[in-house]
Design a protein around this nucleic acid. Structure first.
Length: 295
DNA sequence: CACTTGACCTGTCCGC
DNA sequence: TGCGGACAGGTCAAGT
């Protein structure tokens, strides 16, 4: 999925546009994508749009919260004008193709159109597209949120003050025997880091992704703590990364991968030392590193 | 208990 | 071209 910077980019643009709008109708094209009775949301007003890790939350009054997880290929695309095409948004690059498309799983329609920038006609529909159907939307209560939910077990937000060095160290030490790359992908260690930013953060910290957690010294953990923050902040700055599917709510792509140091750069020279970047598999996921700069 | 692998889906790309 | 296999931003459940 989109990782933290991608979800945060979506959250930012969505919040401006759907705040205080009322839900008119929801169409569920793929039943497994939506968990809960969506008709309960009809007539309800959007009160806030927030993010926790890679999960996007939309809160309504009266204890209703809608959670979105985009997993690998999920997209949230705003309609630009009534019944017409949005700019972009099609995973194959067909910019003229109107929504819904083949991979559209859920359509959320609001009672009034989005307030877009001057000169742009806003539609009232939000499209949840997801080619691989791993993503989901679920309707939960605030009681569920504080209970035994996965959200309550999630680690600290890496770009907040909660993400202290000592908390990071303590969370890492719960899994001393696993590869450090796998550890920072664990959402209970730190929230929102995915496969792209994990590789990038380890590069910035100069640490091989295959190292076992217990072999890291205090300085290395400190560098990694900083590397996670820096890679995510850089991702946010460039509107996220688009490997193939990620697009923002306008259907536009993120440009972080143009600036990435190692991700999907195997057999290309390291930007620092010109050694060729290598790719290996760690717990089933592609991992990229510079064999010279990372030890 | 700690850790790793397979499964969930669909589509694309690469080698033969 | 066609076909099979590997692979893809994530996370669980089931396996070792």
């Amino acid at each position: 999925m989109p990782e933290l910077p991608e979800v945060e980019t979506i959250r930012g643009s969505l919040a401006d546009l759907i705040l205080n709008l009322k839900i008119k109708h929801i169409t569920v094209l793929n039943p497994n994508t939506f968990q809960g009775d969506f008709t309960k949301l009809y007539g309800k007003t959007v009160q806030s749009v927030w993010r926790r890790g890679k999960v996007l939350g939309v809160s309504f009054g009266e204890d209703q919260i809608l959670l979105f997880h985009l997993k690998m290929t999920g997209q949230l695309i705003l309609e630009k004008s009534q019944g017409a095409a949005v700019r972009g948004g099609h995973p194959t690059g067909d910019m003229e193709n109107p929504m819904p498309i083949k991979s559209t799983r859920v359509i959320i329609e609001f009672e009034s159109p989005f307030r877009l920038a001057a000169g742009e006609a806003g539609g009232a529909k939000l499209y949840f597209n997801d080619q691989r159907k791993f993503g989901w939307i679920k309707l939960v209560s605030s009681e569920w949120m504080v209970g035994d939910s996965f959200l309550s077990k999630m680690g600290p937000e890496p770009l907040s003050s909660d993400f202290t060095l000592s908390l990071f160290r303590n969370n890492l030490n719960r899994h001393p025997q696993i590869a450090i790359k796998a550890a920072i992908l664990d959402q209970s260690v730190v929230a929102g880091v995915g496969n792209i930013y994990a590789s990038e953060a380890l590069y910035l910290a100069g640490i091989l992704p295959s190292r076992k957690v217990k072999t890291l010294n205090d300085l290395e953990i400190k560098k990694l703590h900083q590397g996670i923050k820096t890679s995510l902040e850089t991702g946010l700055k460039y509107g996220g990364s688009s490997r193939s599917h990620y697009v923002n709510t306008d259907g536009g792509k993120g440009h972080y991968l143009d600036y990435a140091n190692v991700y999907e750069r195997d057999n290309l020279p390291c930007k620092s030392c010109r050694t060729l970047i290598k790719k290996i598999k760690i717990s089933g996921r592609g991992s990229y590193f510079c064999p010279e700069c990372q030890v």
